[in-house]
Design a protein around this nucleic acid. Structure first.
Lengths: 162, 162
DNA sequence: GTAAAATGTTAGCGTAGGCTAACAAGGAGG
DNA sequence: CCTCCTTGTTAGCCTACGCTAACATTTTAC
């Protein structure tokens, strides 16, 4: 079942709302996606037709098992891409969020897996002592240290927010 | 001027046809993009309205200066992304071609520049002698050598084709 | 120079997914 | 219990961009 980019965004948002507030409502989905309620209304009907959510007119919106599995995949893909953008390419976090949104749709599951592996390879390299210093842009070990520092910094900031 | 993904693909193909055969024709564009002629017909009108191509009914299709500049940018972006996919992530070339097509639309000019820099950084690292051998997956120097080898191999194969 | 083939165009359909305007349902306070 | 506000829905419009069927023009081949 090939979903559209927008359907994937809906699933993602529904999942996030379900996990954070317990339920998803048309108005909240519309706010999150910055679109109007009628647009959401039509979209959730299409997702219901695909058995990805359960929903009755004026009723609650809930992901089905299948819908939740897909939502989780989408979110994981999003996070991998965003991590690459922010921690490796040093793209500004807000921009990265937007770009990851559309890039994830373009990226196959296979490529996503490869990107994930690549990121962890970069992060987990065995230490190589740099012959110069800890900030040598020509040295992969230094680059790795820089990337690791960026990553842990970002994680801390996230914790502070929460 | 924000173009759609499909408009960008049209520009790219028109540029390639212009450079390789001297001119672009509706039928050739349709074949390249695997769509029908009426679809192309409508698209070139929209590009003409944006002053990106010059064209009259039943006449020749030519990129304007502006159109050509944009086409070149699009192609460059495509190549950068494809290089990342093929030479660094080791995605199969055909898959990479398809993914680059849609990914480039999602990627901002700024991020593209960052990706370009990242690729050249990986390629141009000063040599670090690996303490093990030339195929140590934990060693960035070895990884770099592997990536470089992949790249030059691919370039050779391209030459052989041409 | 004309007939056939290739090429280009028009008209109109379908889907996806935004939008607004207008209406319907449900809950909270007086 | 009724009114009002929030939330949800319906109807219908618009754009982008595929498609087919049918028609027009141009090129080619004899």
């Amino acid at each position: 079942m090939k979903l559209t980019n927008s359907q994937e965004e809906y699933l993602k948002v529904i999942y996030i709302l379900e996990k954070s507030t317990g339920k998803s409502r048309v108005t909240d989905i519309a706010k999150k996606l910055k679109i109007t309620k009628p647009s959401v209304n039509r979209a959730i009907k299409s997702l219901r037709d695909l058995d990805l959510i359960e929903y009755e007119v004026y009723g609650e919106i809930n992901l089905t098992y299948k819908g939740e599995e897909i939502a989780k995949e989408i979110i994981k893909k999003h996070d991998i891409i965003k991590m690459f953008l922010v921690d490796i390419l040093e793209v500004d976090e807000k921009d990265a969020e937007e770009e990851a949104k559309s890039m994830k749709y373009a990226m196959s599951p296979d490529t996503t897996k490869k990107l994930e592996k690549y990121i962890s390879k970069i992060m987990d390299l065995g230490d190589l002592d740099c012959e110069y210093d800890k900030n040598n842009p020509k040295c992969q070990s230094c680059i790795k240290v820089t990337i690791k520092n960026r990553l842990s910094k970002r994680k801390e900031q996230k914790k502070l927010k929460a």
